[in-house]
Design a protein around this nucleic acid. Structure first.
Length: 433
RNA sequence: AGAGGAAUGGCAGAGCGGUCGAAUGCGGCGGUCUUGAAAACCGUUGUACCGUGAGGUACCGGGGGUUCGAAUCCCUCUUCCUCUACCA
């Protein structure tokens, strides 16, 4: 690692100390096991760490003073005296070394434990264990009534020869489809549409690297422990990004912004790679779950007072896209058990895909509060000159494959598949037939 | 990929074994002067941890070593520059 995580502010510890009951009930909402034991251990380890640091610093101060003394004596030519003092220095060095080791150990233990603690959910997050406990915030749009011989998208793409899974298997493996002809053009049209919409809303366009180093993985919270989800290029120790969030948010790792820079609004298109180990089954046919897919991601860095307001605006923005694409959707507030590790509050947007008669998640919009910025050391200098952690947020706007699936399924007719009006000028055609 | 050079505070750039957290310039902030502005002048200007405080400790790309003492010496990794080779 090049980035120095050693001195990252132990914000979590302070949060736990200052708001013990809040953190406790929050983590309980996530069904985080052995909460009380873990929190108590955190505080104990932190106390231990402080104790050792105090001892270590004390001995170091003494060592420094001896060195200064020797320097002075050497200058005066009193070599014999300095030789005597050097003996004392050797003893101090021994102590420094010992307490330094204790301190490093305590800090490493503490950090390892802190890395296992997920973000504390926002007060509005419902308790719950699984996706069934998510709260439906709203539903919008008309669910189309299709003819009896409607098809799911995995049949439609074969019928019109626009996306080829078998070819992907030949070239790479399962979950790496080849988009062809109007399928490829639909994909490209959607990417351009999403980017243009974001630009119109004041977002700044980024094209990030799609391989990232270990530091970046830690910064946004994919590491440690989620290695299994990411492809890893062993020869160079680089991870293929599971989402554009990783590189786009890591732009601000170890950065002190000024308050006037906020809010930062970035948008970027990137392919995303997910190993999805062990998550295959009948319900993930076709485009529903892939190893490689495209996504346009929006990321914001905001003042802590503004992040929830921003979350709502990002949610509305994503809903606006779905409305323009004429897709029926609903918005879920995720329950504690279904939320991502790093999030404080997450809205999922799901579209109804009428061919398979299922809701498909197409976007996830989250506020991470200071969880990521603490790891990233992403701070800003306020009007009052004080430095504090910023809040980070992101959302898919949008993930391509399921949008494609829903467009194909919902707009199918016996004569072909109608394209949403808003895409016509991007596509250069209005129907796939 | 081979050969050589380099990495210092927001930027530029000194320092190459002892009081250096670091000269100097620019920039930033505060002030004097001015009707206002510019110029000039004066002051100030990194981050984190420990400590109620005084204060202490750490950081000169990352890690390790030599030494009583390292920005300075050694090893190693990373990155950048120049030349050569190769290549979208």
């Amino acid at each position: 690692m090049n980035f120095n995580f050693k001195d990252f502010k132990m914000l979590l510890v302070n949060q736990i100390r200052e708001n013990y009951s809040g953190v406790l009930t929050g983590l309980q909402k996530r069904n985080f096991p052995h909460v009380e034991t873990v929190l108590k251990t955190v505080i104990d380890l932190d106390d231990l760490r402080k104790h050792y640091q105090f001892q270590k610093d004390d001995f170091k101060a003494e060592g420094n003073s001896i060195s200064r003394e020797i320097g002075q004596l050497m200058k005066e030519g009193k070599k014999e005296v300095s030789d005597v003092i050097k003996v004392r220095s050797a003893d101090i060095k021994e102590r420094i070394k010992r307490y330094e080791e204790y301190n490093i150990k305590a800090e490493a233990d503490l950090k390892a434990l802190l890395y296992t603690i997920p973000n504390v959910p926002h007060i509005s997050v419902p308790a719950g264990k699984t996706a069934d406990d998510n709260e439906v915030v709203l539903e919008n749009g008309v669910i189309p009534t299709l003819h009896a011989d409607k098809l799911p998208h995995w049949d439609l793409i074969k019928k019109y020869d626009i996306i080829d899974f078998d070819l992907g298997v030949k070239i790479t493996g399962a979950g790496f489809p080849v988009y062809k002809g109007k399928g490829a053009r639909l994909q490209r049209a959607l990417i351009n549409f999403f980017l243009d919409e974001a630009l119109a809303q004041g977002y700044y366009e980024i094209q990030p690297p799609i391989l990232v180093n270990e530091d970046s993985g830690y910064g946004t919270g994919q590491l440690p422990d989620k290695e299994g989800q990411m492809y890893f290029a062993d020869a160079d120790k680089l991870y293929l990004i599971p989402t554009g969030e990783v590189p786009i948010t890591n732009i601000y790792r170890d950065v002190i912004l000024s308050e006037s820079d906020l809010p930062i609004k970035n948008v970027g298109h990137s392919p995303c790679f997910r190993r999805e180990a062990g998550s295959w089954g009948a319900h993930v046919r076709g485009l529903n779950r892939l190893h490689q897919f495209d996504k346009v991601e929006i990321v914001q860095i905001t003042h802590p007072d503004k992040s929830y307001e921003t979350l709502e605006s990002m949610s509305s923005y994503v809903q606006g896209l779905l409305q323009k694409l004429e897709l029926p959707y609903r918005v879920l507030r995720l329950c504690g058990g279904d939320m991502g590790f790093t999030s404080a509050l997450t809205y999922d947007m799901e579209v109804f895909s009428a061919g398979q008669e299922r809701w498909l998640e197409v976007s996830s919009v989250s506020n991470f509060e200071t969880y990521q910025s603490n790891r990233l050391k992403l701070r800003f200098r306020g009007e009052d000159k004080k430095i504090q952690l910023a809040h980070s947020l992101n959302g898919s706007a949008l993930a391509l494959p399921r949008i494609v699936a829903a467009i194909l399924e919902n707009n199918q007719t016996p004569d072909g598949i109608n394209m949403p009006k808003v895409l016509h000028r991007y596509l250069g055609f209005d129907m796939i037939s």
